[in-house]
């Protein structure tokens, strides 16, 4: 493979020289002229394969992104226990948070800088574990998950209207410490946030060592697809996060409240589908077909001569 020069140090002239040198040694070996050509074909084939591999490699790096995925569990979903041992089997994803500056009332600084998110599902229900550091436990501590609902894109700020794109609604799962329950909410634009008539979400939180752990859970699908996010295993959907630190300032006023909160951008969430081995079968069929094609081709060539 040396002559392909994958590091690109040589120009094309350099390559040509390399081939000449090689040809010279072949002549000294007094091989048949046909073999030179055959060797060259071989090198070309290798060069093409190398090109595919190298090109394919860079392509997959460009796709790297962050998402949270829910693996399937069979032994019961830990919907009531933020500290359940099974959570350690879920892969954590960390998402950065910003103060909400998109619309008034804004806030310039927030307590929570990152949230760590895990998820699991059992093909009936999904459970999210939201975890973040908060030095104090306050009655007004709160957190929320946000999802796009339906096929239309929704702006991450409560699905507020976009000027050139028709947006969809968002579904918000909201938890507040002093109530210690979830509120299933809908919004499509500022000032439209309201609890739904059908409450499908549960939440359970635990605070220890300066860290909040909150479990949100809900059936994967509900009877209200216009209001609730519907989770289909195997499909990526958009998810965003918000956190309120319920601390108070010197005057006894809440610092983070309403739109003054920590927010994230949209990220992706997927509930994993059951394992699917069909692509191994397709690969085996394709390889067998290629082998058969080779066999027929060579037979035909041999007969032709």
């Amino acid at each position: 493979m040396g002559r392909i020069n994958p590091h690109g140090r040589g120009s094309s002239g350099h390559c040509r020289q390399g081939v000449r040198v090689k040809l010279h040694t072949e002549n000294e070996d007094s091989m048949k002229p046909a073999n030179h050509a055959v060797k060259r074909v071989l090198w070309a084939g290798l060069a093409t394969i190398a090109a595919l591999v190298m090109g394919g490699g860079s392509l997959s790096f460009a796709q790297e992104s962050v998402s949270v995925r829910a693996a399937i569990v069979t032994g019961g979903l830990p919907v009531d226990d933020p500290n359940a041992a099974v959570w350690t089997s879920a892969i954590p994803a960390t998402f950065p948070m910003s103060p909400q500056v998109h619309w008034p009332d804004r806030i310039q600084e927030v307590t929570v800088k990152d949230v760590i998110v895990r998820a699991l599902h059992d093909d009936q229900q999904v459970a999210f574990l939201l975890e973040y550091s908060d030095p104090t436990q306050d009655p007004d501590d709160g957190a929320a998950l946000e999802f796009m609902v339906g096929d239309k894109k929704a702006h991450f700020a409560h699905g507020q209207p976009m000027l050139q794109v028709e947006g969809g609604p968002v579904n918000i799962w909201f938890w507040k410490h002093k109530d210690d329950k979830a509120v299933d909410m809908s919004a499509k634009g500022f000032g439209t946030l309201k609890p739904q008539a059908h409450q499908d979400v549960k939440a359970k939180a635990a605070y220890a060592n300066g860290t909040w752990k909150i479990v949100f859970s809900r059936p994967l699908s509900t009877d209200h697809p216009d209001e609730d996010v519907q989770i289909t295993p195997g499909e990526f959907i958009s998810i965003a996060f918000a956190v309120w630190d319920g601390r108070k300032d010197g005057a006894g006023e809440l610092v983070e409240k309403g739109s003054q909160k920590a927010v994230s951008s949209w990220w992706y969430f997927r509930a994993d589908a059951p394992p699917d081995y069909s692509s191994y079968m397709y690969a085996a069929i394709a390889a067998a077909l290629a082998l058969g094609f080779q066999f027929v081709l060579i037979r035909k060539l041999k007969k032709g001569q």
Binding site: I4, G8, S12, C15, R16, A44, A47
Partner: peptide, 9 residues
């Protein structure tokens, strides 16, 4: 072959 390699490089 030289052309292909040169093109790729």
């Amino acid at each position: 072959i030289i052309l292909m390699v040169a093109m790729y490089v």
